[in-house]
Design a protein around this nucleic acid. Sequence first.
DNA 1: CGATTAAATGGTAGAACGGCCATATAGCCA
DNA 2: TGGCTATATGGCCGTTCTACCATTTAATCG
Lengths: 109, 109
Amino acid sequence: MKLKPKHNRERYAARARIAKAMAHPSRLLMLEALEGKERCVCELTELVGADQSTVSKHLAVLKQAGLVEDRKEGVMVFYRVKVCCLKGFWDCIEGVLTENLKTQQAAMR
Amino acid sequence: MKLKPKHNRERYAARARIAKAMAHPSRLLMLEALEGKERCVCELTELVGADQSTVSKHLAVLKQAGLVEDRKEGVMVFYRVKVCCLKGFWDCIEGVLTENLKTQQAAMR
DNA sequence: CGATTAAATGGTAGAACGGCCATATAGCCA
DNA sequence: TGGCTATATGGCCGTTCTACCATTTAATCG
């Protein structure tokens, strides 16, 4: 029995949406900074070193993807990581980078 | 002691390059299809259902990121996954999707 | 209330992406 | 050699992304 292609397409589209949300240096940086420790937008803005509005929009992307959630406290908004599966992601990315380095070194000989 | 920000920036840029290479439905589909089984471009083209040139370019992206490698055999080119750490990636993505579904269902009440 | 501060939103310009078509390249075979 | 097939590449165009600036919104505090 063949799987329904429509469903598969939607499945990969959904996956891609998540991956896309992570596919930016600033967002990765924030994601890592937010693991196990919530931070306000002002702190993240300082960390990233971009305009506050830019950071706010990046956070909206992460939130929309379901990767982070926020909490309002007075004037400030604190963000934190919402999911618990990021380690696998980091390990994978690092694994690829390590692999690439190896390939690159092997190619130099 | 503070870490050098320049290096950190480059590190996150490198990570983002990998994540970006995966952040497309067709590329995710191919990546999964290529796990443990090499396939020619024609087969992948059929699988994805896009123009052959489009698929070829997607494959170039995956290759450039170091995620797949290729092997020429006669007129055909066979691609296969080059890294061994994709499981962590899939698990992470699926984890987020599951989490999102849960959140969504909880919100309906 | 008015001033101040944190964050979000709207607007916009430039860059990057993604699709297809047309074309080039390369290997195979008659 | 000429024709056929599998891939890759170049070009073009519409869409999306990303950054910043300007402005709005919301909460706090005189």
